[in-house]
Design a protein around this nucleic acid. Structure first.
Lengths: 338, 338
DNA sequence: CTGAAAGCGCTTACAG
DNA sequence: CTGAAAGCGCTTACAG
């Protein structure tokens, strides 16, 4: 590998001092240098194929233009659009996202967090919120810039960008009630996650508002199809009439529930109506196509990245919550009870 | 933000020179220092909460332990498992992946490539191969380490890790022929991509081997559901009997074809059998569940990362191809012609 | 086994 | 408008 040219090389070719070359090459300081000189420097840089060494610059300026993005799992379809939203904001402004998967394991998360701190990330976007999140208090104390996306925490140190879960859940329940359902069950996500907790709470309120009898909330072991399938299978194995409508804590749980419904010889939506949450890709292609609450994931990422950049550029870390509107997308998996 | 401790701080607390602290802190050189001294340094580091500044180290060693990963689009379900496979190899070895989306736009790709070079990435993994790929010749000339994954290029400068497409295509065609199909159509991916080209070629061979009449290959505008839908709709609008079996270039094309089949009032698999390629997640949940050729995406990523690390550590960039075995997963979308 | 020094490639106050 | 110098936080030959 032939050595890459440095700023000194550019300066030599242009016949100036490297300080002048530095000023000429940086748009923010190029006004300080004689236009003719600047042109010579630019020409020399182009001729040599010069690219600034970001590592050296970072060491000097203690800014890496790098953002750590912590997500549970990239293969969960909820997260890729969030990450893309983040990148679409960061890249044009010269930032690079360092994406790390935590698999919901606090130790893995801490290890990644440390590694990213070692790489001098300018800030963090966390989609891994648990209601208890010790990392955040420590980060806040150290003056680290961060934004939460999708999931929040009980202790609010940082801004949160999230969907308006209560409104979404209210819409889902109202839809089922309007269809004529009375026996609703919510297959909830883990109560240790803010979304699981908040959606369950909203479900409880919505059901109470409609004055229904004995609504049930069953907490799944995780936001996965397998957890949803197990919970639904256990429910259907109970004595007594099954629910006529099931509200999934997310789409994966709903997908698992659908498997269990079929395995029990029941039909959706004829015997059991079913809703998801998040409106992940390809729900349209399912049969029955799944009714779900659409979450604007790309915008979630966009907003989170914007807030983070503001913070990095000096805005204080205010623990405000930005709720983006959600809307129910009605498809084939919900129908009147028969 | 209270300033983070540096190696000099650690050295001062431990009562040694920073060179000694550096040696003690690095596992590779800690053997050079007195065990008792080393312990003092480690204790001081822990006490201060010291994390080495990777930027400074990189500037000194000209190694960033950073790998640029270029993919077309993270929201295409093919890529997240590849990226996770890559990260699962890189992270334990101290590397971080910088993932960039190119949207199949050569200019965007070049911009990201330049940015990653500026960040001094130690190597690259490209899943963005086009058959013509000028970036690669230039990179090879500059002595840059790289590995291709999934898609190759016509000019082979770098190792390629890919699925055994010909075998997968042969299996799909053999399955359809065994079911009794004669009129097969292949809805191919773009011929400018190695996978599109190679799969179409394999289709042609497989069909010839079975001595079928007039097999057709229709090239879609992209590896997307919309492109598949348009191609299939155009095909069904033609005069004459439609094919009894359609082989999709990937799952998204197949999904689009399924929409067009339904829109035309036909049923799958009763009227038209359909196969996909890649076996992306959730195909099982479709009705009909889609028969597809399974590609071990996670392993693709794992192998690519391994090869890249070898290269970074000094192995020459041999243009070998590693083909991972594929297997046909038969589900509900294929049946005998009626 | 440890220290003193140089230097990686930049940026930026300070002079002039 | 330009240059000379210092320094970001490390690592590593070189002495001792």
């Amino acid at each position: 590998m032939t050595k890459r040219p440095t700023m000194s090389d550019v300066a030599r070719v242009a016949g100036v001092h490297k300080a002048t070359a530095s000023r000429a090459l940086n748009p923010l300081t190029s006004g300080q240098v004689n236009p003719a000189t600047a042109r010579r420097v630019l020409a020399a840089a182009r001729q040599l194929g010069y690219t600034p060494n970001a590592t050296a610059r970072s060491l000097r300026t203690s800014r890496t233009y790098t953002v750590g993005v912590l997500i549970p799992d990239l293969t969960n379809p909820l997260f890729p659009p969030i990450v893309r939203g983040i990148e679409n904001v960061l890249f044009p402004r010269g930032y690079t996202a360092l994406v790390a998967n935590t698999d919901n394991d606090p130790e893995r998360e801490a290890a990644h967090f440390e590694a990213l701190l070692g790489r001098q990330a300018d800030g963090f976007i966390l989609a891994t919120g648990r209601r208890e999140h010790p990392l955040l208090a420590a980060a806040h104390e150290r003056g680290i810039s961060a934004v939460l996306v999708n999931r929040g925490t009980d202790d609010a140190f940082y801004p949160l960008v999230t969907g308006d879960d209560p409104a979404g859940m209210t819409a889902a329940v109202a839809h089922l009630v309007a269809l004529g359902h009375h026996r609703l069950v919510h297959l909830a996500g883990p109560a240790t996650l803010s979304t699981g907790f908040r959606r369950a709470q909203a479900f409880r309120h919505a059901v109470a508002a409609h004055d229904l009898d004995g609504p049930r909330i069953i907490e799944c072991a995780g936001y996965t199809a397998d957890a949803g399938e197990r919970a639904m299978a256990a429910l259907l194995a109970e004595a007594g009439a099954p629910p006529t409508a099931v509200v999934g804590g997310n789409d994966l749980i709903a997908l698992g529930a659908l498997r269990a419904i079929r395995a029990a010889g029941l039909r959706c939506p004829e015997d059991v109506s079913l809703t998801g949450f998040n409106d992940m890709p390809f729900l349209d292609e399912l049969r029955p196509a799944l009714t779900s609450v659409h979450v604007p994931t790309h915008e979630l990422g966009v907003e989170a990245a914007r807030l983070l950049l503001e913070q990095i550029e000096g805005a204080p870390a205010v623990a405000k919550t930005i709720s983006l509107p959600l809307r129910l997308v009605v498809r084939e998996s919900t129908a009147p009870p028969s």
